[in-house]
Design a protein around this nucleic acid. Sequence first.
DNA 1: GTGTTTTATGACCAAACGGTCAAATTCGGA
DNA 2: TCCGAATTTGACCGTTTGGTCATAAAACAC
Lengths: 207, 207
Amino acid sequence: MTRAASRAKPTRIQREKTEAILAAALDVFATHGYHGATLDQLAEAAGLSKPNLLYYFASKDDVHRTLLERLLDTWLAPLRALDSAGDPRAEIGAYVRRKLEMSRDYPRESRLFAGEMLSGAPRFLDQMRGPLRELVEEKAAVIRDWTAAGQIAEVDPHHLIFSIWAVTQHYADFEVQVRAVLDTEDDAYFEDAARHLAGLFRRALAP
Amino acid sequence: MTRAASRAKPTRIQREKTEAILAAALDVFATHGYHGATLDQLAEAAGLSKPNLLYYFASKDDVHRTLLERLLDTWLAPLRALDSAGDPRAEIGAYVRRKLEMSRDYPRESRLFAGEMLSGAPRFLDQMRGPLRELVEEKAAVIRDWTAAGQIAEVDPHHLIFSIWAVTQHYADFEVQVRAVLDTEDDAYFEDAARHLAGLFRRALAP
DNA sequence: GTGTTTTATGACCAAACGGTCAAATTCGGA
DNA sequence: TCCGAATTTGACCGTTTGGTCATAAAACAC
């Protein structure tokens, strides 16, 4: 196998082109979905010919899988940063804010994940039952301790996390709906959303 | 054109087969998305041959479009039922409950819409800028009156509606993630979710 | 500069896809 | 029971798609 991906030491060109392909693929997959995206689209968006793209990745699926793997860490970073030593309501407020900022700054990543979830996450289930589940368990325990100590209202930790995910990701995944309803084209509504969500969770979590 | 869809009075067979096709299409489109679904899949799921399916619908797109049109009313019914004459917190609580029940009972419909949103809702934008937007404006005004009267906490009406949509639809659209994190296979978590969301919005909306 | 490895491409292929069509079958009313 | 309309189907078609391959061009090490 002379495939680039299998080399021990990637060359400069390999690194550059691989990145270009993944960057383009994020765009294409996020807007058209896995099946809606074609190799020709991916190649053109990356500025390569189709066979050239397939020189760097074994298949369309390979590009998609690589993209998802790289994204998981970034995507979970905000939750990872939830600090058990900090002030509970401030920590949760900060988490909501960070997560909302990700929806604003990385909507394509959000949509890529959402698309995966919608289709049952066939090429992604392992990661979810493994690392994701462990991280959630860890942070759910932190939240449970906070409620037990009476520092925040009594909430189901798992479902609180789901609620935070849902309300923040909504602004990326359902962007067209938000824009249609608010009848806007700029990003100003993110500030309103931030204020709304801050107030919502602050009141809901008051002990 | 001898196409069935153009007849003035549909026969019994036309009604039955059309329904069977749409029922099957809901299943297939919801799990595979528009591009991921094939005519052969649709036909087999409906128990028909491919040409036979195309006798009832002009194209794959025609099936998809019809499905979406039929769904919109059902989907907005819970919000429509929000009664300006009722008790504010009870009304909103009931709305959250109804919406969550829809996620439990009609997850495929939810995913179908979500898929449409993710891809930018190309074949759906008009409906969103029209009827949907009007309905939201109407109900947002109701919520605004409630806050003005001091009956609920001060909230941005639009973003409150977004939050309710987000947290309830999450349980349908991201079902695999919820199941993976909770490590469950039955639907029992819907009751926990209902309790959690009831408490969350009750506390958040307390005047 | 030369030789070797890496990178790029045009031509091509088999399979899958959306859709058509003529002919066969079934249905329903008189 | 008969007849015309409605329904169903197998065979077929052009296009698109994911992917291959031999060959050419560029990069690189010496």
